[in-house]
């Protein structure tokens, strides 16, 4: 049994099939890339995993839990953390308070939550901005806050949704380092990213989807050279 696995995962929005019979597995400790053109269903897959949308059919299993039908907060308690593609800072709280709120996931004590939050901020190199109001951060720092907040819930599986989009090349390099560091800390990662050199350099395996369906999967080099993938990205002539 895989660490994480979906079977025939399907999601319909009315007439639109956003995710179509998608089956894939992720092993513990790997960085798993999920790619595909705009609107191909990547974020929807994340929303299904975290229980934000009800599943139309299929199953999702994480460690020995079936996630189908569980409330979002329970899925988080089981050890699934996520970032939002459209960043959602808790605006009228400081950076530190944002992270403390998530650090309460496995403790009831403010003292402990604060310590955990400071550790996470240190880990993600956001500690200097801890007293900033969250709404005042730059886009780069907002993305970093998304990651920090997800890490503070102490996940075993982390879902990263385009955390590099809109960053400068310098910030992207730092982002790649951070993601490797997270993996080295023992956290399994599923990453959605459009920036190809990022995805190719850090992923152990990649799944490419289009119209919610798998079109290729395997090692980065295999997927990158797959004819269907190239067509999906460049469009058929």
């Amino acid at each position: 049994m895989n660490f994480f696995e979906t079977q025939h995962l399907t999601k319909r929005f009315g007439g639109l099939i956003a995710v179509n019979d998608l089956s894939f597995g992720v092993e513990e400790g790997e960085i798993f890339g999920l790619i595909g053109p705009n609107g191909s269903g990547k974020t929807t897959v994340f929303n299904l995993i975290t229980g934000s949308y009800p599943i139309t059919s299929g199953t999702i299993q994480f460690k020995n839990h079936r996630l189908n039908g569980l409330a979002t907060w329970k899925i988080c308690k089981l050890g699934v953390g996520r970032t939002f593609q459209v960043v959602k800072p808790l605006r009228r709280m400081t950076v530190l308070d944002n992270v403390i709120a998530s650090a309460f996931n496995h403790t009831g004590s403010l003292h402990e939550a604060r310590d955990k939050a400071l550790q996470a901020l240190e880990f993600c190199d956001l500690i200097e901005k801890k007293d900033y109001p969250a709404k005042g951060l730059t886009i780069g720092d907002r993305k970093r806050l998304e990651i920090t907040r997800a890490l503070a819930t102490e996940p075993a599986l982390l879902l990263l949704d385009e955390t590099m989009a809109g960053l400068t090349p310098q910030e992207q390099t730092e982002g790649v380092e951070l993601i490797r560091k997270i993996r080295d800390a023992g956290i399994t990662i599923i990453i959605v990213e459009h920036i190809m050199h990022v995805i190719m350099s850090i992923c152990d395996r990649i799944l490419c989807i289009n119209y919610g369906q798998e079109i290729a999967s395997g090692l980065p080099a295999e997927v990158a050279n797959n004819q269907d993938v190239i067509e999906a990205y460049l469009g058929k002539d």
Binding site: W73, C76, R92, M93, R149, A150, T153
Partner: peptide, 13 residues
């Protein structure tokens, strides 16, 4: 501040 975020950081809203 944001009920979606609250749920994803483990809060039963």
């Amino acid at each position: 501040e944001d009920q979606d975020v609250a749920e994803t950081i483990g809060i039963s809203s």
